[in-house]
Computed example of a mutant assay.
Amino acid sequence: MSRDASILTAISSLVGEERELRTQHVKSRGDPATHSERLQKLEAELDQCWDLLNQRRALRAVGASPDAAKLRPASQVQGYLR
């Protein structure tokens, strides 16, 4: 489960950065184009982390090794419904 914990830590860190960027954007601090680009990257990374965590949980639920889960490309996981 330590791998799950590290994924959750990464998710927490990404969410924190996302919140900060959104707050800065609302308060009109910084370059909006830079914020938009970074937010898109953060959203893609978050989608990948959630997908990896969900894969691990699903594998564990069926008695398989969660270590068989693989990080999928952002283009594949973006838009998945949680």
Rank of each mutant, 00 (worst) to 15 (best):
E17L: 12
L71F: 15
S12K: 12
R22D: 06
T34E: 12
S36I: 01
R38F: 08
V62Q: 14
K27I: 02
Y80F: 09
T9R: 15
L53I: 02
A44P: 01
D31P: 00
L59P: 01
D67N: 13
D51A: 03
K41R: 13
A5E: 09
L71M: 15
C49F: 10
T23C: 03
V26I: 13
E45M: 06
H35K: 00
K27W: 02
A69P: 09
E45T: 04
T9S: 15
D47W: 05
R82Y: 09
S36E: 11
V26H: 05
S6T: 11
S2H: 14
E20T: 14
A44M: 01
A58V: 07
A10L: 12
R60E: 14
P32K: 05
S75M: 05
A69L: 04
G79D: 09
L14S: 09
L59Q: 06
E37Q: 12
A58Y: 12
K41F: 05
N54K: 11
S36V: 01
A69V: 04
A33I: 08
E20W: 03
Q24M: 10
H35F: 07
Q40T: 07
L8M: 14
D4H: 11
R19P: 00
V62H: 04
L42H: 04
W50F: 14
L59V: 05
Q40S: 10
T9E: 12
L14T: 06
Y80M: 07
S6P: 00
R57K: 13
V15R: 09
L53P: 01
P73K: 05
S6K: 13
K27P: 00
S75R: 15
Q24E: 11
L71H: 08
S36L: 11
P66L: 03
I11Y: 04
K70R: 15
S65C: 04
A74H: 08
E43N: 09
T23V: 13
L14A: 14
L59T: 04
G16H: 05
S65M: 05
Q78R: 15
A61C: 06
L14K: 14
R72I: 03
T9I: 10
Q78P: 02
S2Y: 11
A69S: 11
L8P: 00
W50K: 13
A64E: 15
I11E: 14
L71R: 15
K27A: 08
Q76W: 08
C49R: 12
D4L: 13
N54T: 04
V62C: 07
P32S: 07
A74T: 08
L81N: 11
D4I: 06
D51G: 04
Q76F: 10
R56F: 04
Q24V: 00
N54D: 11
N54F: 08
D31Q: 02
L59R: 09
K27H: 05
L71K: 14
Y80H: 13
I11G: 08
A58F: 11
D47C: 05
T23I: 11
